[in-house]
């Protein structure tokens, strides 16, 4: 039984059909990289998975539970699917540890001492324990993104979505964030990443999904996909980014 199961997902913005029927099954512990040109619908797809965008047609199941529509409250959803954004979106008026503790305290009603313990654990995981009392403005982009990952992990989600998490970073800061994701992958975290880091997609992911014009155009294991693309669109895309 797949952990995430997406069936016939459609989404339009006005007259523009962005997703034209996506079917995808993702196993627990799988790392899936979603690649494609801008405008191919990959970010919209990701945002539908945690209902930041409401899709028009189709279903999303998470471990046998319906996730879309009104089936889950935002509170339940956040404990199933976490997301990290390109632009970090840390809360600037809160310290690192307060950023991480907020959702467990407010949404899960976790006792303060326990929330603090959880926060320290996840911050340790992303290597940000020593900056626990810093404010986001005092951190580099890479450090902020690592805190954002910790903040998502604090809700103990079953799946972590990453929406171009390294695109806003200076080149020398990309590595530290990718290392964190790689270690999460090794721990068995289910990851769905929209990414432009082809090397990372090739080295770390178990499966690569190439999206083109609102559909999954081609997918498969990274070695085969990158070396022997079946479709001219993918071949062209690979040639343009590598």
């Amino acid at each position: 039984m797949a952990l995430v199961s997406v069936k016939d997902l459609h989404k339009s913005f006005g007259d523009l059909e962005v997703l034209k029927g996506i079917d995808l099954e993702i196993e627990s512990g799988e790392v899936v990289a979603v690649i494609g040109r801008s405008g191919s619908g990959k970010s919209t797809f990701l945002r539908c998975l945690n209902q930041l965008e409401q899709h028009d047609w189709g279903t999303i199941h998470l471990a046998d539970q319906r996730l879309d529509g009104t089936a889950m409250s935002p509170g339940e959803l956040s404990q199933n699917v976490g997301i990290v954004f390109q632009s970090f979106n840390l809360f600037p008026h809160k310290t690192v540890v307060e950023n991480v503790m907020l959702a467990p305290l407010v949404v899960k009603q976790t006792p303060r001492a326990e929330a603090r313990k959880i926060a320290e654990e996840v911050l340790d995981k992303v290597g940000m324990l020593e900056k626990i009392d810093a404010y986001p403005a005092q951190l580099s982009g890479g450090q902020q993104q690592r805190v954002a990952i910790a903040r998502a992990l604090a809700m103990d989600p079953k799946v972590l979505l990453c929406d171009e998490v390294t695109s806003a970073l200076d080149p020398e800061l990309v590595g530290e964030v990718l290392l964190v994701l790689e270690s999460l992958a090794k721990e068995g975290m289910t990851l769905i990443l929209v990414t432009h880091e082809m090397k990372f997609a090739r080295d770390v992911s178990h499966r690569v999904v190439f999206m083109h014009q609102g559909r999954i155009h081609e997918s498969g294991d990274p070695q085969t996909l990158f070396t022997q693309p079946k479709t001219p669109e993918l071949a062209q895309f690979i040639a343009s980014v590598l």
Partner: peptide, 8 residues
């Protein structure tokens, strides 16, 4: 967005 996806 960030606070919404954290479940607030």
């Amino acid at each position: 967005q960030a606070s919404r996806v954290l479940g607030l």
